[in-house]
Each structure stands twice: as structure tokens, then as C-alpha cells.
């Protein structure tokens, strides 16, 4: 349905969301599924926008460039929202721990965790803490598929595949 790769700006995010919304409205998917896919895409793009970070030898410090790739696909089983972005080595272990933890929880526990993070969790300046990933898992109803691929000695490519069944 959609493939995007490159630097992300707010305008581009708006265009991507608009394009997907039109395609979803034209599809046979029911309202519940359409809203899930749209909501998950909103959170995934937000993650790419706020959490892409790369270390480079030249600058000796991490540089944030909102960029990455996103694919929205539809097959017989349902929808896939796939994203990929660069992150620094230091962020890998905490992100991995979060994802492993979220994947162990059932629906009811995810709900409790969401309420707990919403009510007590630290809000980062960027606006979300780990609420985004919990929300993605809740809306999807499936386990999150993810991978980390080392790029060089400082950076990783993080990929996430979120599924929504028909």
C-alpha cells in the first residue's frame, strides 16, 4: 500500500497519513481495523520522527535526523506496518528489554501497564515515554516482531513489524 524511505518532516508525515487514510477508506476493511492500522501508523511515524539517532566518528556526538523507512502492506491475513530506523548502540539494550517485556504481557496486563505508565510514567520532553510501544502492542493484538542489525561499531538498524489481522 505504501513504501517510504528517507528524511521525515512533519509535512511528509501528514502526507503519508493522508495517503493511507484514503486507501483504508477505499478498502473493504471495517472501521475497527481501519482505525487500528491508522493509529498504529501514527505511533510508528511518531517513533521514527523522535527516536532516530546516529553516532558518527566525525562529530563525536549523536546526531538526530528524523528519517527511516515505513512500509504498509495488506495481504490475506491482514495488515503489516513495518518501520526501520537507525539507533545508537546505547539505546539497543533498553529498547530490547522493553519489547521483550511487552511481548510477554497478555491483553489485560497490557491494559494495566498502559494505565500505569500513563498515570505514573515519566513523560519525556519528546512526548511519550514508552507509552507508544505499549499502545502499538495493544492496538495490534499480536506480538511485536522486531530485529536489530549492527551497521558499524556505533549504530544499529532497528526494524519493527506490527500486524493487524482482519
Amino acid at each position: 500500500m505504501l513504501l517510504f524511505k528517507g528524511e521525515l518532516t512533519e509535512d511528509l508525515i501528514n502526507s503519508i497519513l493522508h495517503a493511507i487514510e484514503l486507501k483504508l477508506t477505499d478498502s473493504d476493511a471495517n472501521l475497527k481495523i481501519r482505525k487500528k492500522v491508522f493509529n498504529i501508523l501514527v505511533e510508528c511515524l511518531q517513533n521514527l520522527y523522535h527516536h532516530t539517532e546516529m553516532n558518527s566518528d566525525q562529530e563525536q556526538q549523536s546526531k538526530e535526523v528524523p528519517s527511516g523507512m515505513v512500509i504498509v502492506a495488506n495481504d490475506d491475513d491482514g495488515y503489516s506496518i513495518m518501520t526501520g530506523n537507525f539507533i545508537t548502540n546505547d539505546s539497543v539494550s533498553s529498547l530490547k528489554t522493553k519489547l521483550e517485556y511487552i511481548n510477554k504481557l497478555d491483553r489485560e496486563d497490557l491494559k494495566k501497564m498502559y494505565q500505569n505508565v500513563l498515570n505514573n510514567g515519566e513523560m519525556t520532553l519528546k512526548g511519550g515515554g514508552s507509552l507508544g510501544l505499549i499502545e502499538i502492542a495493544r492496538k495490534s493484538g499480536k506480538k511485536l516482531e522486531y530485529g536489530f542489525a549492527p551497521i558499524d561499531n556505533m549504530n544499529n538498524f532497528f526494524s519493527l513489524n506490527v500486524k493487524v489481522n482482519h
Partner: peptide, 9 residues
């Protein structure tokens, strides 16, 4: 109709 997690807080 929709709200993101950044709005939810």
C-alpha cells in the same frame, strides 16, 4: 476520532 499517545498524557 483519533488521538496519539503524546496527546493521551
Amino acid at each position: 476520532e483519533y488521538f496519539n499517545t503524546s496527546s493521551s498524557k
